[in-house]
Simulated scan of single mutants.
Amino acid sequence: MMGVNVTGEIGDMLTMCTPENDMVMTYTPMTKKNVVVTGFGPFRGFEEENPSSLIIDELKATGIDGVNLELHKITVAYEDVSKRVPELWNEHNPDLVIHLGAHPVPKTIKYEQQAFSDGYCSNDVNGCTPEGNRTTCASQDQILKSCINCDELARNVTEICGLDGETKHGGLCVKKSEDPGRYLCGFSYFLSLHQDCSKSLFIHVPAFEGECTKEAVAEVIRETIKSILGIF
């Protein structure tokens, strides 16, 4: 057996391969992703509890590995949304912003691909509408689209969560949508898309019924966030 004291050419080669000092291995932990998730408070049709607000509670209870979640509930009011959305972007420098809102379609989670700048003529919970029925950011665009591919995202999450639209979680499914509406959902989404369309997504969640529970919907939201960030 050859050791480090072997002489000649082989010894010289072994000497070059032998470190003079012990090698110290260091471990650098992965930096967590900053993800802002918002839900809405009560409003017409969901006067008692907004499903999006309950999902915020579920995410707070479970968390997501590798993600620093910043969870916020926003009043269904144009003035509050106009103020809070830009503040959240500035405060947290997020890698991703997810807005959650409720919609009446049962057992269906919708990934909204785009939002609109105007047409916001429905009164909020304070009886107000935005000036000119327009969003309050400086964008000149009428439509802003997320760079997140909602078709692909829906396929990925459907597979990851094993959703079949029939039996799993009472028939829960995920779909792409291109119309978030002209209320606070679309209003908040347009503001975030104006901040950074590569890091913004709005998700409509259904009311909870039967096996389509808040836990089941929260699981889909967690897997959605992980899929967007590439965390597996």
Rank of each mutant, 00 (worst) to 15 (best):
M2G: 07
G3R: 09
G3Q: 10
N5H: 14
T7S: 15
T7W: 08
G8N: 08
E9I: 15
G11S: 07
L14Q: 12
L14W: 11
T18N: 03
T18K: 03
T18M: 12
E20A: 13
N21H: 07
D22N: 15
M25S: 14
T28M: 11
T31L: 09
T31R: 07
K33H: 14
V36S: 04
V37Q: 01
T38M: 03
T38C: 04
F40T: 03
F46V: 15
E47Y: 10
E48D: 15
S53Q: 03
L54W: 04
L54G: 03
I56G: 01
E58P: 00
K60Y: 02
K60I: 02
A61I: 00
G63W: 01
D65T: 00
V67N: 01
L69M: 02
L71P: 02
I74L: 13
T75L: 13
V76D: 11
V76F: 05
E79M: 06
E79K: 12
S82H: 02
E87H: 13
E87L: 14
E87I: 13
L88D: 09
N90I: 10
N90S: 14
L96E: 03
L100D: 11
L100Y: 06
G101T: 09
A102W: 05
H103C: 09
H103M: 13
H103Q: 15
K107V: 08
Y111V: 02
Q113T: 06
A115T: 06
A115N: 02
S117F: 06
D118Q: 11
C121R: 14
N123R: 15
N126W: 13
C128Q: 15
T129M: 09
E131V: 04
G132P: 10
T135R: 01
Q142N: 15
Q142D: 14
Q142K: 05
L144C: 02
K145D: 02
C147W: 08
C150W: 00
C150Q: 06
D151R: 04
D151Y: 08
L153V: 10
N156T: 11
V157N: 02
T158I: 00
I160W: 04
G162N: 08
L163Q: 03
H169K: 13
C173K: 08
V174I: 03
K175Y: 06
S177W: 09
D179T: 07
D179G: 09
Y183T: 02
F190C: 00
S192E: 05
C197R: 15
C197T: 12
K199N: 10
K199A: 12
L201H: 10
F202D: 14
V205C: 04
P206T: 00
C212K: 00
T213S: 13
V217S: 07
R222P: 10
I225Y: 02
K226S: 04
S227P: 02
S227N: 09
G230L: 05
I231D: 00
